[in-house]
């Protein structure tokens, strides 16, 4: 036994080999760093507040694969996705509660992160802690702001023939301040009057509105087969299809409130405008649209969907 005991420690090559295997196993935990670029105005020049800094880590864990390292919507997974992941730097957000053409509220981004976009590759994150949802949304908002300022910076550099260093030394802070103040000037939550009862008259009225304003794209049956449905393009010239109301799948929520907000605030960057009309009219239109949903009995809210979680687990 004693000779064996000593032999155990004498024959070191085998121990070395096992250690090498362990080292190989640890490889994935080695971090790597990237070099900041000197030429252009990039994210490295952008100051993040505390919340956004924490959010960047959450972003790297959950979002980066589709939305890309700088939020341009060009992550590695984007190749297979349709619709393409949002380009945050463009500032075009479809699902907001702000007036048409404006940036989203932080709460709007949080809602999309929490509940996902039904029927698209944007999955929901129901179990992410509130603080992380807020932080990552703040980071996304920072990417939006960065995109706005970057375009201004590029414009000024081009116009005044400045290098980046000169601009950063000079009027950059002022420029940044001004751009952001302008961007948020009209950002507020659109109002929502009390929801009327669903009744025959209201639906008939909604139907009139629908046929006048919506049927051209969404079609008379709501199947999204309107006359101009195939000719629609979004702000970046990509093909975009009108929503099929019969499916009951609404990207950012299928409650009446969700649909109402979509009508009132429009989908930025797409041919879907904010629908003009009083709140009451929009409610009637909402009710009519929801009446188009074909319920085949097999499709309730998903057992793990936001609606179920907010109301407690489905039984």
């Amino acid at each position: 036994m004693t000779t064996q005991g000593r032999a155990l420690w004498r024959t070191t090559p085998i121990l070395g080999l096992t250690c090498a295997m362990a080292a190989l196993g640890m490889l994935p935990f080695v971090p790597f760093a990237s070099e900041p670029s000197e030429e252009a105005f990039t994210l490295e020049h952008w100051e993040l507040d505390d919340s956004a800094t924490r959010g960047a880590a959450v972003y790297a864990q959950y979002c980066i694969g589709c939305h890309g390292p700088t939020g341009l919507g060009n992550g590695d997974a984007a190749e297979f996705l349709d619709p393409k992941p949002r380009n945050f730097q463009s500032g075009n957000f479809k699902f907001r509660s702000t007036p048409s053409g404006e940036l989203p509220l932080l709460a709007d981004i949080e809602h999309v992160v929490r509940c996902g976009l039904e029927g698209s590759a944007m999955r929901r994150f129901p179990l992410l802690p509130d603080s992380q949802v807020r932080d990552v949304s703040r980071y996304v908002q920072s990417l939006v702001e960065f995109g706005l300022v970057r375009r201004e910076v590029e414009y000024v550099m081009d116009d005044d023939d400045l290098t980046l260093a000169e601009l950063l030394e000079g009027d950059y802070e002022e420029l940044r301040e001004e751009t952001l103040v302008d961007a948020y000037e009209y950002v507020w939550r659109v109002g929502m009057d009390e929801r009327p009862e669903v009744d025959e008259d209201g639906l008939a009225f909604g139907r009139e509105l629908y046929e006048a304003q919506c049927a051209a794209c969404h079609g008379a049956t709501g199947r999204g087969e309107g006359a101009s449905a195939n000719a629609l393009r979004d702000y970046k010239d990509a093909e975009i299809r009108p929503r099929d109301f019969t499916s009951g799948v609404f990207r950012a929520g299928s409650r009446a409130e969700d649909v109402f907000i979509r009508l009132k605030s429009g989908l930025n960057g797409t041919p879907m405008p904010a629908v003009s009309g009083t709140d009451e009219e929009l409610w009637h239109l909402t009710h009519y649209i929801l009446s188009l949903v074909v319920d085949d009995g097999g499709r309730g809210p998903h057992p793990t969907s936001c609606a179920c979680i907010e109301e407690g687990p489905a039984r």
């Binding site: 085998i14 080999l17 096992t18 295997m21 362990a22 196993g25 640890m26 994935p28 935990f29 864990q61 959950y62 994150f125 179990l127 992410l128």
Partner: peptide, 28 residues
Amino acid sequence: DLVPWMVIVEAMKPYWGVRTFAGGMILI
């Protein structure tokens, strides 16, 4: 404790590393 799934996976990785090491010993 309803920890998000990917956080669980990340938490398991060191253990899986040790498992590979131990498996290597056994295999040798």
